[in-house]
Design a protein around this nucleic acid. Structure first.
Length: 270
DNA sequence: AAATTCTCCTGAAGGC
DNA sequence: TGCCTTCAGGAGAATT
């Protein structure tokens, strides 16, 4: 499933192909996504030129002279650039057509979103209340510590809440907490500053490593055959319930927090 | 304000 | 082979 590293890699991968390209056609085969795709999307987009492709949280922002196309990949979405007229296949819901290429949005579970906005992007409802980017300088242990005082929510849910910090999905929340030695169930307000310093660093590390891997794994966004090819990182705990902890060999535990699978080592994480 | 639950959707995996 | 159930989950919306 696309987490921040996949979105970042997608952003870099498609940017080089569609920046400065003018949209000649828009095909919407399935408008029922997370929110309905505007019926007017083709007439809005045709003739516009993509000036930049950026990422905020897990949103991809394609800016033109008139506004921004927001794309969220949800659980199962992917974007790829097609240059050889290949036929659309199952779940290829939207094509953004340029002179020599097509940006194709595929999303089996349709939790993704494609939305047009002409208002200033930072004021958009979906972006205005987001917390800091975990890879920028305004995110650190002091920030997490201060924000979490008196909060009773489990720390795993705290770091997965996009109001607090964006882009930490279930997989990397599990991984970062293992790496930091923190019990995912621990109340956010009951963790000391030094441990939050460690956690912030671990969040940065797991995300950065994944982006580095993705840069090589998802090396080609043009005519990638079939699957989007999300990277299989070396995961320490996620998906390893009942398997030995890579640190102490004990069997890894699994619980559910807010209906999310949570895997941890009950000895290494406190 | 904060915490919790609900909701959308399809594909994979397991049981019989 | 096939049909059923269960699970997976991003994150906004709704509820407590």
């Amino acid at each position: 499933m696309p987490e921040l590293p996949e979105v970042e890699t997608t952003c870099r991968g498609i940017a080089q192909h569609i920046t400065q390209q003018t949209i000649t056609q828009v095909i919407v085969r399935q408008p029922r996504l997370r929110w309905p795709v505007a019926e007017t999307l083709p007439e809005i987009l045709i003739g516009q030129t993509v000036l930049s492709v950026q990422r905020r949280a897990k949103y991809l922002l394609m800016t033109t002279q008139n506004g921004t196309l927001l794309v969220h990949l949800g659980m199962s979405g992917s974007l790829r650039v097609v240059t050889d007229n290949q036929l659309a296949s199952k779940h290829d819901h939207i094509d953004i057509v340029f002179a020599d290429s097509v940006l194709r949005f595929n999303d089996p579970r349709r939790f993704g979103a494609v939305l047009w906005t002409s208002e200033p992007i930072e004021e958009h409802t979906l972006l205005r209340n987001l917390g800091p980017e975990p890879l920028l300088d305004n995110f650190d242990g002091t920030y997490l510590y201060t924000l979490s005082r008196n909060r009773k929510v489990p720390v795993k849910l705290f770091i997965m809440d996009s109001h607090n910090v964006v882009g930490v999905g279930n997989i990397y929340a599990n991984e970062a907490l293992f790496m930091a030695g923190i019990d995912p169930k621990r109340h956010a307000g009951r963790i000391a500053l030094a441990r939050y310093e460690r956690l912030a660093e671990c969040i940065r590390t797991v995300l950065t490593d994944a982006i580095t891997q993705g840069g090589t794994t998802l090396r080609d966004f043009v005519n990638s055959d079939g699957k989007p090819g999300y990277f299989q990182q070396q995961l320490r705990v996620y998906g390893r319930s009942g398997l030995p902890c890579r640190n102490c060999e004990a069997s890894l535990s699994q619980v559910r927090l807010a209906n999310r699978s949570t895997v941890f080592c009950r000895f290494c994480q406190r």
